[in-house]
């Protein structure tokens, strides 16, 4: 009789097609968000411009050529004009962008990584360890970040690597606090208890359960961190504390161009300024889109319960 055979009959879902992974479904929701998609497109376009552009518009960004200084946009060979030292503006925008993107991306990711590990360890283990670790971040957060950056950058001569480390060293604080909150909530979940009852320890809890389950927060935060890091690079360069010339980034280009605002050399200001605004906005839109995507995924699985 069917009614009774069921106790042992296979009752699982019949289809053999594996469910698409969570990452893939998150991506599907993300692509439905127009603004986020636009952000991603802008970002890809800007990266292509900075990294592939020099292949099509090759320029000398090392030697100055005062004979070609301050040409207006539209001059032959210089679609965006030249700087006060005769560098081609379009080419400089590409090389400068490379510095900004590389340093911003690396610093943002590094800060997120440090912050995530620090925060989840503090949150998972709790107790006095958590209290001690969080007081350290509180203390560090009390020092104005820009002040710290300026002091450090004034002591060491920045290279790209130094710049990345300096920025990451102040930027990890906020993700640490954020993830610590997540970890506090996650550590009392039943699946953490279940894992502990199997004999698992703290490392496994943090890296296999807490971090993956906080991934939404982590990824969203990472995009904002990158945007912030790009801005930090710009601040530092603007204050003249960035990588020394002839290397350039968008911040130092702004700084150099600001001298000539009164003469009306607008092409020295607008292109790097717009580029910074675009890339920061793009990262923020992507972050918003990702946050929605992760939220929806959670709602869906929650709604099925």
């Amino acid at each position: 009789m069917t009614a009774t055979a069921a106790g042992t009959a296979p009752a699982a879902a019949e289809t053999a097609v594996p469910t698409p992974s969570l990452a893939r479904r998150t991506l599907a929701v993300f692509t439905r968000n127009k603004l986020a998609l636009a952000g991603a497109v802008v970002l890809v376009a800007l990266s292509a411009f900075c990294f592939l552009g020099p292949l099509f518009h090759s320029t000398d960004q090392v030697h100055t050529d005062l004979g070609q200084a301050n040409l207006a946009p539209g001059s032959p060979g210089h679609p965006l004009g030249t700087t006060d030292l005769g560098y081609d503006m379009l080419g400089r925008l590409m090389t400068g962008g490379r510095t900004s993107l590389e340093v911003g991306l690396a610093a943002g990711l590094l800060a997120t990584f440090i912050g995530t590990v620090y925060g989840s360890v503090a949150g998972y283990f709790g107790g006095w360890l958590d209290a001690a670790m969080m007081r350290i971040t509180d203390a560090a957060l009390a020092i104005p970040a820009l002040f710290l950056l300026v002091v450090v950058a004034a002591i060491v001569t920045p290279s790209k690597l130094v710049l990345i480390l300096i920025i990451a060293s102040v930027a990890w604080l906020s993700p640490a606090r954020l993830i610590r909150g997540e970890a506090l909530a996650l550590r009392s979940r039943d699946y953490i208890h279940a894992m502990r009852l199997m004999g698992g320890g703290g490392t496994r809890a943090v890296f296999r359960h807490i971090v993956p389950n906080a991934i939404g927060t982590v990824v969203v935060n990472a995009t904002f961190q990158i945007a912030d890091a790009i801005l930090y690079v710009a601040y530092l360069s603007f204050l003249g504390l960035s990588i020394p010339p002839p290397a350039a980034d968008w911040g130092s280009m702004l700084s150099a161009g600001i001298t000539y605002t009164q003469v009306g050399y607008w092409w020295l200001i607008f292109p790097p300024g717009i580029a910074i605004v675009l890339v920061v906005a793009a990262f923020n839109f992507i972050g918003d889109g990702l946050r929605d995507a992760f939220d929806v995924r959670l709602q869906k699985s929650g709604g099925n319960r």
Partner: peptide
């Protein structure tokens, strides 16, 4: 426990 073996690929 009477579940299909295909369950391993599901969430």
């Amino acid at each position: 426990v009477g579940l299909d073996r295909g369950a391993v690929d599901r969430y």
